[in-house]
Design a protein around this nucleic acid. Structure first.
Length: 312
DNA sequence: AGCCAGGACTAAT
DNA sequence: ATTAGTCATGGC
């Protein structure tokens, strides 16, 4: 930390961080509660409202109340991660190089497991803007109020499993969850009654942790990998969604007719190295930016389609 | 109006 | 062990 100021009702601190792209990190679809406000990003971390802005040498953060050393935010934002060392492990191929060139400074967050699991249960066959909407409604409906600047309107923490378990399926469906409502309910009930121990998962080998997560209804391989990667720091976990699947096919298997999920998973695990999940997020964000799906509406005619010949 | 979305589940081969 | 149908909902 290079500087800090403390007012009666809030604190601001500057952090020197090389290669930190705030927009890419908070807007790339790994987390759903950070929102762009007045040139910065605002969200709720560990029950606290926080604002983050990019500076020439790193980031500036603001919170209300006692920041208590900022470890909660430093950990969430992964400020201590050696990004350069991670990027060096990426494979030296043209698609990977292009992705890193396009969004260097993107970092994986360290999210709270329950919020991450619940959010990605809501994510299946939903657009990111809709996921953000669902998560916002869940927080507003069932989350604890959080102290925030008065002009922001009411801000709520993401609701804990007990709050969602007691909400009932109908109330969850009212948040536009659709068929995912019973899935989220199942997850909440498992955490509440102990069948799913989110703290124990942190200590499990990745394979075992993945199985434990997939015991929840509505949690398949992709959602489990997202939680392993975004919340549990298993940076070799490689979520394959429709965007990543298309990117892999177009960029690495332009001739292949169709590849089974198992074959793509095997290729990814072998090709992208110990930080494959990190590489995956670079590919994901790169193709979505290229398609105009980040920070606005899609531009006509650029949406990637299989066989459109953009890859090489 | 029709297609698609950071999928997973189920039933039928 | 693979494959199609189904599930809500909203953006484009």
């Amino acid at each position: 930390m290079s500087s800090a100021t403390n007012a009666e009702d809030g604190s601001t601190a500057g952090f020197e961080v090389p290669d930190y792209d705030v927009d890419a990190t908070l807007g790339c679809g790994q987390a759903f509660r950070w929102e762009p406000v007045h040139g910065g990003w605002e969200g709720v971390v560990s029950g606290r409202w926080a604002r983050v802005e990019a500076t020439p040498i790193g980031i500036r953060a603001t919170c209300l109340g006692d920041p208590e050393g900022w470890d909660w935010l430093r950990r969430h934002l992964a400020l201590d991660e050696d990004l350069a060392a991670i990027l060096e492990t990426f494979p030296e191929d043209p698609p990977m190089r292009a992705a890193v060139a396009a969004c260097r400074g993107l970092r994986l967050l360290r999210q709270e497991p329950w919020e991450c699991l619940a959010s990605f249960i809501c994510s299946s066959t939903k657009q990111i803007v809709q996921i953000r909407q669902i998560v916002r409604e869940l927080a507003g409906g069932f989350g604890e109020p959080v102290v925030a600047p008065a002009d922001r309107g009411p801000v709520h923490a993401f609701p804990g499993p007990a709050a969602l378990a007691s909400a009932g399926e109908a109330a969850l469906r009212a948040c536009r969850l659709g068929f995912r409502a019973p899935y989220l309910l199942d997850a909440a009930e498992r955490v509440v009654d102990g069948r799913l121990d989110l703290a124990a998962i942190a200590r499990m080998p990745t394979r075992e942790a993945r199985e434990a997560l997939m015991s929840v209804e509505g949690v398949g391989p992709k959602v489990a990998d997202c939680v392993l990667l975004f919340a549990y720091g298993r940076q070799d976990a490689f979520p394959i969604d429709v965007w990543v699947r298309r990117a892999l096919q177009e960029l690495y298997f332009p001739k292949a007719r169709r590849l089974t999920p198992e074959r793509l998973a095997r290729f990814s695990a072998g090709h992208f190295g110990p930080y494959g999940g990190y590489a995956q997020q670079y590919l994901f964000h790169h193709v979505r930016m290229r398609a105009g799906r980040v920070g606005g509406t899609a531009r006509a005619g650029i949406t990637p389609e299989p066989g459109s010949g953009d890859g090489r």
